[in-house]
Design a protein around this nucleic acid. Sequence first.
DNA 1: ACTAAAGAGGACTAAACTGGTACTAAATAA
DNA 2: TTATTTAGTACCAGTTTAGTCCTCTTTAGT
Lengths: 152, 152
Amino acid sequence: MIRMSKMADYGTVVMTSLAREPDRFQSAAEVAARIGLSAATVSKILKTLAGRDLVESLRGARGGFRLRRSPSRISVAQVIVAIDGPIGMTECSTTPGLCSQEGDCTIRANWQRINRVIRQALEEVTLEQMTQPIAQAVVFRSMNRARPGAPA
Amino acid sequence: MIRMSKMADYGTVVMTSLAREPDRFQSAAEVAARIGLSAATVSKILKTLAGRDLVESLRGARGGFRLRRSPSRISVAQVIVAIDGPIGMTECSTTPGLCSQEGDCTIRANWQRINRVIRQALEEVTLEQMTQPIAQAVVFRSMNRARPGAPA
DNA sequence: ACTAAAGAGGACTAAACTGGTACTAAATAA
DNA sequence: TTATTTAGTACCAGTTTAGTCCTCTTTAGT
């Protein structure tokens, strides 16, 4: 399954904080205070996000960070990718060569399907939605088919 | 998003190997050779899975490991939970107290929805499906709504 | 010009995870 | 009974990740 670091998780929180006031530059310290993380950590995350062009930064007094695009045009997936790199799975299930003994590795194919669903889910949720109570926000459907736990 | 360790990933591969011959006891070394991981690592994983009651173990010559239930009644989610503990996200988005300044934390609520989808996906995929080519295996639907990247 | 506020960049420490080794205990087979 | 096979336990080293800190540069205000 998809591997997400703590930093990427924090990243979504930081970005959502920026998304609440998309026009104003917010300092790292300010964001940190709002979301309850250390200024150092938030600062590091924002630096990364600035490098990835999701936020723009302004130096000096009154400086800070601001979203580059509208909150409705930034997905949670984009934030995660910016911090962790391409969304993908852990080695064995993704890397082709590993289970080579098995011939046709059915596991990998199935995992890739699971991953696609997860990736899609993350791509369909925007920062704008993250700022809103769930009511109008995300609506999901589930996968279908098998029901383990039910009698086989 | 969900945090899955390498070990949990390996766990699904190990379990799928057992699922291919559900009645026979397979030794850790044998499974390791099949899937191309070190015997030590596979052994450690199987020990954990045995402790979680997903597999039964038999000591001594001709011993090994075997699934406790039918492959169709064991989900990928169960394997992951057995190794990594409850499926959930990293701290900030899951732990209630952290973003307390924000008042009603809309982020957490939205993340929990995303998580639910992921968890469901993993619960609906069985080891039996993992042993099969995808054709008849898992069929997914995606979430709906927002399309970031499209004009807001 | 000077000072304070802020980001940029990197070095560093601490904690967690990964992967392995060595040894012990149990069960079978000769 | 003895040797062999196999799981069980405990521990250790390397790597990665998390988190902090320090120094430098930029900007605003006085």
